[in-house]
Amino acid sequence: MADAAEGGRPGDAAPADPAGAAHTAAAAGTAPPGAGAAEAVASALQSALVDVLPRLLGGGWERRAADALGFLRRRLTGDYEVDEFGFDAELTDQVLVPLFRPVFEKYFRVTVKGVENIPDTGGALVVCNHSGTLPWDGLMAQVAVRDHHPADRHLRLLAADLVFALPFVNQLARKGGHTLACADDAARLLARGEVVGVMPEGFKGIGKPFADRYKLQRFGRGGFVSTALRAGAPIVPCSIVGAEEIYPMIGNARTVARLLGLPYFPVTPTFPWLGALGAVPLPTKWTIEFGEPIPTDGYPPEAADDPMLMFNLTDQVRETIQHTLYKLLVERRSVFF
């Protein structure tokens, strides 16, 4: 993840999503080829199972079965929508969030604090620290907002260019609400009233050595503050404790990283020595705390061009997150419990 001013190039267009375009067209009334046959298959499945499943699984499963069949029908016929960024809200709520929910609740046992500080409506910019070698922190923050916010909001994360260069990952990221970390995309999302998440440390934060854990890296040039000022959106600081220890990074194989075109190649006590097993994160205990929002709607439009104001607000957000991290570290009993 990266700062909107640093992780992407302003003005870059979001990567095309041909599948998303087809789905949008289908939702508008233009069904894809084979939609009639798919509709017949889905209808037959529903007719065959809707009476059987309640008897096999009990009355409490009836609605779940109907919902699952309805979801399958829409997937087969293309009768669902994605937004202009490729975000598929139904797929996110029905598949992606449930996929990560057990990791959130059972593996990392995340405690969420202050999520009500994100407004119930309208745009907001959530600014988080970034750590952990792999971006589990962003995924857990998304689950935290979706499952714990009183208005069931989605967190739309700004991601680095590398995410959209990876096959398969790029499509999942788009459908899960991620978009390019550039000022234009961030501004458009805020204008639509979305909750936008940014991790300004970028690769400097996620790829820092274990010895520097919980020490915030530079927050770029304050591009996220400028974007929030132009949109008049509040800035919500977010502090995440627990992610630093999931892959203790004790080294960086820079030569391998250059050969693979990666920003870093981590060496941990388990990776690459244990192969794929070494990629399993340690089951640390997490806390995600959302701080009080910093309002920006009281500033005049030209304030976004004031470098001193941007520096001061950036420093305020950074210091708020850093102090909260220290507080949470003092409060926690251990890394794993």
Rank of each mutant, 00 (worst) to 15 (best):
L162R: 02
L166I: 15
L166R: 11
F168D: 06
F168A: 12
V169G: 05
N170H: 15
L172A: 07
A173P: 04
G177Y: 02
H178T: 12
H178F: 14
H178R: 12
T179Y: 02
T179E: 08
C182T: 14
A183P: 00
A183V: 08
D184E: 15
D185K: 09
D185W: 04
A186F: 09
A186R: 04
A187R: 09
R188N: 04
L189Y: 04
L189N: 03
L190Q: 08
A191K: 14
R192Q: 14
V195P: 01
V195K: 00
V196P: 06
G197S: 08
P200S: 12
P200M: 13
E201Y: 03
F203A: 12
F203K: 08
G205H: 02
A211D: 11
A211N: 10
Y214H: 09
K215M: 11
R218S: 12
R218G: 10
G220Y: 05
G223A: 11
G223Q: 05
G223R: 06
G223L: 02
G223S: 07
F224M: 01
V225S: 00
S226A: 14
T227K: 01
L229D: 05
R230Q: 12
R230G: 07
A231M: 07
A233K: 02
A233L: 01
I235V: 05
V236M: 01
P237H: 07
P237G: 09
C238E: 09
V241K: 00
A243M: 14
E244T: 00
E244M: 05
E244Y: 04
E245H: 14
E245N: 13
I246L: 04
I246E: 06
M249L: 06
M249K: 10
M249C: 04
G251V: 09
N252P: 13
A257K: 00
R258P: 01
L259F: 07
L259E: 13
L260E: 13
G261T: 13
G261I: 13
G261M: 12
P263E: 14
F265I: 05
V267M: 11
T268P: 10
T270F: 05
T270L: 13
A276M: 06
G278C: 07
A279H: 10
V280C: 05
L282R: 14
L282Y: 12
L282H: 05
P283I: 13
P283E: 13
K285G: 02
W286L: 08
